[in-house]
Simulated scan of single mutants.
Amino acid sequence: MAGTDSSQPINLAPTPAIILCEPQLGENIGSAARAMANFGLWDLRLVSPRDGWPNEKAVAAASKADHVLERVTVYDTLEAAIADLTLVYATTARSRDMQKEVYGPEEASGAMAAHIAGGKKAGLLFGRERWGLLNDEVAMADAIVTLPVEAAFASLNIAQAVLLMSYEFRRTSDAGRALPFEVEHEPAPRTELVGLFEHLEGVLDQSGFFTTEVKKPSMVNNLRTALTRGRFSSQEIRTLRGVISSIDRRHERPNPNRQKPQKPGQPKD
């Protein structure tokens, strides 16, 4: 669709971050950047792009969405890419074996618009071209966003999915119909929540909680999903980590009341 007015200034108002997890093709990154620019989004984050960054094919596909490409940030891990966000949604068409809220595009966009209007940061996760997001990546999100696609042909190109969500966010924001998204406190930055995950999982590892390596990934995902649902404040996370540290120290401290096992043939006291 033609009609770009290059005399208009670029608007860099706060919008959701778009996070692409391990994108494979530069063309898809560029097309996603173009879709974002069409609807006023500009914060594009790449997690381990297969062909590296910058990418000439992305530049060609972006059709002069230069202000988006110039601000692209690249991360080695998803945890780093979402560290400064306090609301994260994962886009997926597949059902997941985890207890997470599932929203449609309008509801999710309204919640993000209200969150951002309150001075906080939000983001949308998009998966790989071939198989989307992994379960442990979805577990890092607050909720799932599912587009109303045909079940028999539900797979969307990344840029198409970014386009649809960018359009919905712009439409919701412009209409002034941001849905209420009230919390009693300021949720902690994602980096603090990841720290809680790693602290708890490390202690559970040492205590032998994960009895089999085969079941460990699903158990970790379930724990992360439950903790994410709490939307803890920074103070609550510090308290939880203090509790975990206390339990860990108690677990390591010898119990003076515990009887030592007797050696064979040793007389009783």
Rank of each mutant, 00 (worst) to 15 (best):
A122P: 13
R171M: 09
G110A: 09
E101Y: 08
L147A: 13
A113P: 02
L87K: 10
T86G: 15
P105R: 01
V102N: 10
E186G: 03
A175D: 08
S173I: 03
G104Y: 03
E201Y: 06
A113M: 02
G104R: 00
S155P: 07
Q99L: 13
L193K: 03
L156M: 15
S109E: 05
M140N: 11
E106M: 05
E168D: 06
G118P: 00
R96M: 14
R190F: 08
F126K: 05
M140T: 10
R128M: 10
I144M: 10
A114C: 11
P187V: 07
Q160W: 07
E186R: 11
S166A: 15
N135R: 06
A93E: 14
T91R: 01
M112E: 03
V102R: 11
K121A: 14
R128K: 15
F153D: 13
E106A: 11
P105N: 01
E107R: 11
T86K: 07
G110C: 02
R171E: 07
I144S: 05
E192K: 13
E192T: 10
A159S: 15
R190Q: 11
R96S: 12
Y103V: 01
R177I: 15
S166G: 02
G110Q: 02
A83G: 09
R94D: 12
A178M: 11
K100H: 05
E168L: 02
A188V: 06
Y167E: 00
E129D: 09
Q160A: 15
L164N: 04
R190I: 01
G127K: 09
V162E: 12
R171V: 08
A151E: 15
K121W: 11
V162K: 06
G110L: 07
G123K: 10
P189V: 04
F169V: 01
A141N: 03
I116K: 05
A188P: 06
W131Y: 12
